[in-house]
Design a protein around this nucleic acid. Structure first.
Length: 418
RNA sequence: GUGGGCGUAGCUCAGCUGGUAGAGCACUCGGUUGUGGUCCGAGAUGUCGCGGGUUCGAGCCCCGUCGCUCACCCCA
């Protein structure tokens, strides 16, 4: 018996026709970034393990139990990237961009990896499109980043999502809050596991789904009330900018982010029709990260949008994702002689930059026309013995069903103009 | 790592209290001479996830195993 292979557990992969929808979503996310002046940063999918440990945070769940880590042949510890920001920082530093004109604005797109138990919208290999703006600590750039994320969703026609924002303040604000929060939690009635969780990151308890915990956390001290004057002013400025852009948002005083590097403005896009994994994108400021990784002491802000989840969101809203490119022409040959000619014409049109496909083999005309129909081509042409002699072909408009006669030499021009 | 659900044609699934398998979609061909989208007809396809057990007999019952899936956790 032959072994049957299947994709590794929990990976997201897309075969036609769904891959076309995936492509539309990804391209839409990318174009929003490009529109806002961000430039491509193409990165490796694996990095030195230490980069993520230091960048994302030694105690985070991502680093402690969700990374794909292995040793390469030179004995180096390598990790498949679980997120994008650390790699971007590394590359910015490595290429000296942090010493050039600021802000550095880059976008990236690709696969990320986390060794988690798969579930709806959560995969071990998943796709993100993200941007990072480095070297400018101005509310203006915060608002730009959030607006760009929002635009990338709106471009697709998404409606049933909400934007939640908060500010995690500067490190002093967080320290003061942490002291009080720890004190508060010490007085709660919690089980052992929850207590350990709170020791690693007490903010986590705000996110706990159990009602017993929620109830106890109702009067917990909120970080937002501990913000310094400066942080508050910054956060207020971001809010007024968003309002002036006409972007709706909610302030979530209990927002929790899983990565340690976040500071100040933090945000999340949540889709209302998805399952438990409803976060379709998120991001925030990470003002100490660059320095932490050995670069200049620059602030930064960025986001990561989940392509897989956004595709699911589009489906849940029944949004029609029109395929990007359509065929300009679908060509059909009748008879041996005509085949050569059609192959030649098709090749020539492709060289000229047109998008063309054809029927192969000896298909009945009816069946070939069905293929033409399904291909979504704008025009079809049938070339047989008659046309070979006449040098002119009937080109059929697949929408109207009407045909018109075009000479072979003017075919390219005809397709280009219609 | 912890729970629940499910594994029958390429896809979505049906199969009553056990008697060796079906539907829709998709696919291929056709409805006479070289033109699709509707309609009609015909056809192909399954070791019923795998292994064992009970039984005269198992897709249906029992055990195991693998896989998928949803949720906890976590997050895109």
């Amino acid at each position: 018996m032959v072994m049957k292979f299947q994709a590794p557990k929990g990976v997201s992969e897309y075969a036609p026709p769904r891959s076309l929808h995936f492509e539309v979503v990804r391209e839409s996310l990318i174009s929003a970034a490009v529109q806002a002046g961000y430039l491509l940063m193409e990165l490796p999918v694996f990095e030195d393990t230490e980069l993520f440990a230091r960048g994302v945070g030694e105690t985070t769940d991502v680093v402690t139990k969700e990374m794909y880590t292995f040793e390469d042949r030179g004995g180096r510890s390598i990790t498949l990237r679980p997120e994008g920001t650390a790699g971007v920082m590394r590359a910015v530093i490595e290429h000296g961009l942090d010493r050039g004109q600021l802000p550095v604005k880059v976008w990236y797109s690709g696969a990320f990896f986390r060794a988690e138990r798969p579930q709806a919208g959560r995969y071990r290999q998943f796709y993100q499109v993200g941007i990072e703006a480095i070297g400018l600590n101005d509310p203006e750039i915060d608002a730009e980043v959030i607006a760009t994320a929002d635009r990338s969703l709106k471009k697709l026609g998404l409606k049933d999502y909400r934007l939640e924002i908060t500010s995690l303040g500067d490190s002093q604000s967080r320290k003061a809050h942490r002291v009080d929060l720890d004190k508060f939690i010490a007085g709660l009635d919690l089980d052992e596991a929850t207590r350990t969780k709170a020791q690693v990151n007490p903010l986590r308890l705000f996110d706990d789904k159990r009602e017993s915990v929620q109830k106890q956390m109702e009067n917990a001290p909120l970080l937002l009330n501990y913000l310094s004057e400066e942080s508050t002013a910054h956060f207020n400025a971001v809010q007024s900018l968003l309002q002036s852009f006409g972007i709706d948002f909610l302030i979530n005083k209990r927002m929790v982010r899983g990565l340690d590097y976040y500071t100040g403005t933090t945000f999340e896009f949540i889709h209302e029709k998805l399952g438990a994994q409803s976060g379709i994108g998120g991001g925030g400021r990470y003002d100490g990260l660059m320095k932490q990784l050995g670069g200049a002491d620059l602030s930064g802000i960025g986001y990561g949008m989940g392509v897989d989840r956004i595709l699911l969101a589009c489906q849940s809203e029944e949004i029609e994702l029109a395929p990007l490119g359509k065929l300009d022409l679908f060509a059909i040959a009748l008879g041996e002689e005509a085949k050569l000619k059609v192959a030649q014409i098709v090749n020539q049109l492709r060289n000229a930059g047109l998008t063309v496909d054809m029927a192969y083999g000896d298909r009945a005309l009816k069946s070939a026309m069905k293929m033409a129909d399904k291909s979504g081509a704008k025009f079809s042409l049938v070339l047989g013995a008659d046309e070979l002699q006449m040098e002119s072909i009937a080109v059929k408009n697949m929408d109207s069903g009407e045909s018109q006669s075009v000479t072979i030499s003017s075919l390219e021009e005809f397709l280009r103009d219609s």
